[in-house]
Amino acid sequence: MSKSITKLSKEEVMHVAKLANLPLNENEGEKLKEQLSATIDYINHLAELDNKVKSLPPTYQVTGKENALRDDITRPGLTREEALKNARRSYNGFFVVPSVWD
């Protein structure tokens, strides 16, 4: 099997971390860079099957199910207490986060 060596740059890694909303410091980014590159090397093996899968449709749903729908009726949900129970911060019935506006 031919192997192509993937070399992710630190910028790429930090960009992915930002997309993934993962707080990574420089060191962690460096470490992950190596591991991710190795994994990407491995999954690139999938390309070897390209001839066999070219004309195949993708399978997103193995059950073959279609039209799994529900009627438009209401059902009891959570009380406000239950909804807020596990929040780190709540206030007057709301969840609280640091301001998203500067």
Partner: peptide, 17 residues
């Protein structure tokens, strides 16, 4: 829905689902 307010001088955002 988001709402912006202050709690004890701290700027926060309130969330209602």
């Amino acid at each position: 829905k988001l709402q912006h307010t202050e709690i004890g001088g701290e700027k926060v955002t309130l969330v209602d689902f």
